[in-house]
Design a protein around this nucleic acid. Structure first.
Length: 635
DNA sequence: GCGGATCAC
DNA sequence: TATGGTGATCCGC
């Protein structure tokens, strides 16, 4: 058994298919044009002849094709891990989808994906019925408030400090490293990985629809001449070390995300080198990487991490994209940006949003005029994220785990054997990280690809293999008895609720530890919620936006207990624990009147001009006033 | 605190 | 021969 380094694999899932040999491809490939998604070669999911029109005009919600989309089409797009644009590959996308679909059909993996897909479909249908229900409501007042809050956020942004953030991403990293040693592979379709799974494909292979995270044997169906190269992590790590030396030249505090990707804050470098522009610095950086490694990198330069990340994808490979920091440039950029490009929007959320007719981030601004839908999906914080200077601070590790896939296993004796092995691995890793933990999570995947976890939290910390196994074995025993005939293909153990093992860092000492060294980005500040007027010291803009969104939307939570739950979107950012407020009423004005404790709401005021309402109970007059204000009329 | 689901890399 | 491993977050309970 080979030792297992806690290496973060590179799977290049975000690499965009790109044909760099052809002129004129770029514009089509930027995926920033509003009609891009409706180009001749549509995504598989939308080829259904029954697909209804989607509109998003005037705040009207048009639920989309999901109800009519066939299950097969849905599965085809689901199986296409990383769909490409037409024209950049020899094999048209719908053919690729068909081949992948047929190669997968009937397999246990396929059936499991079908079950998951059906759950998403149900989620979407329930969401759509909720969306229908809010169509007829009068939302003018809420719109006014949302507008006002957004103005506040924008003002914060205008006055905040500007930073230049760069996201650097190596092109087809693993494959390119392999090509250094075997240059004859350069012009041949090649992928790193094995028959069961690929981690990276070179650009030649991508033309055939070969993708990272695709099983090798399916890739071979797409491209029979595909050359498979086993991965050599030591090589990638060594190259990674070289590129990080370059990063450190421009930002000693850079944040590596993986072997081939990192964020840099070059603001200080630019101050120290006034003769440079952000673009020239990044050109130089990429040239230096190439000089040292003979590998190309792509980069994005923008006002924050999120925008930089999106930009890094645009002129890939071997290119860079500069997004000016002024408000207009950013708004224009974001307006036509497909939602799938937003970090955090994956396959499922893309499908959910598209089912509501939301395909670009510009459509997200629709949440400005429909706070109720916003509450369901919480677009609000996403919207604000584009204007956020904040970036994820490198946080302390919260869990550490191991998992292994193996040949189907049915005998419980073998399972305990495997569990013991995993316990050893985990103990080794815990020791390596000088940590211990109180919560142990057992993860199991059946041969039918059903995935489940069982956890146990102890009063004391675990760190040795014996302690881990003792706890894990109880969890496993419960499942074995509860599921006779259990057949497994994967087992995993993960430890959380961690604490340092060395004495000097134990207990209260770890709270006194200085913040993590690489925090090159602007830090939280004191902000005031424009809705509840509470002050939040040391809060990030994103968390603030999150709070304001909740604060704003709470009064709209319907009282009915029959509300369908569970079909909201995953939130883009973590939510701070908030203090419990009054049970909100479904009527905003009533709620305002009830909440006399809030300074802002002592007397209900116009959310736009802040003039107190003479008679807040006169809803019609309130709405007239707000409408007039929004139109800019002087009261 | 637990478990399922989603996502990034 | 037959779809990965590590870590994180969010939601609903």
């Amino acid at each position: 058994m080979s030792h297992h380094e806690p290496i973060h694999d590179e799977w290049d899932v975000d690499d965009i298919e790109w044909d760099w040999s052809e002129e004129g491809v770029h514009e089509d490939e930027l995926a920033l044009e509003p009609h891009d998604l409706n180009a001749e070669d549509e995504p598989i999911a939308q080829t259904s002849p029954h697909a209804p029109q989607k509109t998003i005009e005037n705040g009207e919600i048009a639920t989309s094709e999901d109800t009519t989309q066939s299950q097969e089409d849905s599965m085809k797009s689901r199986l296409l891990i990383n769909p490409n644009k037409a024209g950049t590959q020899y094999i048209p996308k719908h053919i690729v989808a068909k081949i992948v679909y047929e190669a997968s059909q009937g397999s246990p993996f396929f059936l499991a994906e079908q079950r998951r897909d059906a759950l998403v479909t149900a989620r979407i249908q329930s969401l759509q019925s909720r969306v229908q229900a809010i169509q007829t409501m009068d939302l003018r007042l809420e719109r006014g408030i949302v507008e006002s809050v957004l103005r506040t956020v924008e003002k914060e942004w205008e006055t905040s400090e500007r930073r230049w953030i760069v996201c650097v991403d190596m092109d087809a990293f693993f494959a390119s490293v392999e090509e250094l040693d075997r240059p004859e592979l350069k012009n041949k379709p090649m992928a790193v990985g094995g028959m069961s799974m690929l981690s990276t494909a070179n650009y030649e292979a991508r033309k055939y629809g070969v993708r990272s995270a695709m099983p090798g044997y399916i890739a071979k169906k797409l491209c029979p001449n595909l050359i498979l190269v086993r991965s050599n992590f030591d090589k990638y790590t060594a190259v990674s070390k070289k590129i990080r030396e370059v990063f450190a030249m421009y930002d000693p505090q850079f944040s590596p995300m993986s072997l081939d990707e990192a964020y840099l804050d070059i603001t200080d470098y630019l101050s120290a080198h006034p003769e440079h522009t952000p673009e020239s610095v990044v050109s130089e950086l990429r040239a230096e990487i190439f000089r040292r490694t003979m590998l190309t990198a792509s980069a994005g330069i923008a006002a924050n991490k999120m925008l930089a990340k999106v930009c890094a994808d645009i002129n890939k490979p071997n290119g860079q994209k500069f997004l000016p920091v002024d408000r207009e440039s950013i708004m224009e950029f974001v307006r036509t940006l497909p939602i799938r490009k937003v970090p955090g929007v994956g396959k499922v959320n893309e499908r959910i949003l598209k089912s509501l007719g939301i395909e670009t981030c510009g459509h997200l601004s629709w949440s400005r005029i429909n706070p109720r839908l916003n509450r369901m999906l919480n677009f609000f914080s996403w919207f604000v994220m584009f204007a956020s200077n904040e970036s994820c601070r490198d946080s302390e590790r919260k869990s550490i785990g191991v998992e292994r896939t193996f040949a189907p296993m049915q005998k419980s004796s073998e399972m305990y054997e495997k569990l013991s092995e995993l316990s050893e691995y985990l103990a080794t890793d815990l020791k390596k990280h000088d940590t211990k933990g109180r919560t142990l999570t057992l993860k199991l995947k059946t041969t039918e690809f059903r995935l489940f976890t069982r956890a146990k939290t102890l009063m004391r910390f675990m760190c040795t293999a014996e302690e881990i196994f003792h706890c894990a074995q109880q969890l496993l025993a419960l499942e074995i008895t509860a599921n006779p005939g259990l057949r497994l293909r994967l087992m995993g153990l993960s430890m959380s609720k961690l604490s340092s093992r060395s004495m000097d860092e134990d207990g209260i000492a770890k709270f006194l530890k200085r913040p993590s060294p690489s925090t090159p980005f602007p830090n939280p500040q004191t902000l005031t919620c424009p809705v509840c007027c509470k002050e939040f010291p040391d809060i990030s803009e994103r968390d603030m936006a999150e709070h304001v969104g909740r604060c704003l939307e709470d009064p709209h939570i319907p009282d009915g207990s029959g509300e369908i739950k569970g079909d909201g979107m995953k939130r883009p950012s973590k939510r701070k624990k908030e203090t419990k407020r009054d049970k909100p009423s479904s009527n905003l004005v009533e709620w305002m009147q009830k909440r006399s404790s809030s300074p802002l709401l002592d007397q209900p005021v116009c959310p736009v001009c802040a003039t107190p309402f003479t008679d807040p109970s006169d809803l019609a007059s309130v709405n007239r006033h707000v409408d007039a204000c929004l139109l800019g009329e002087k009261q």
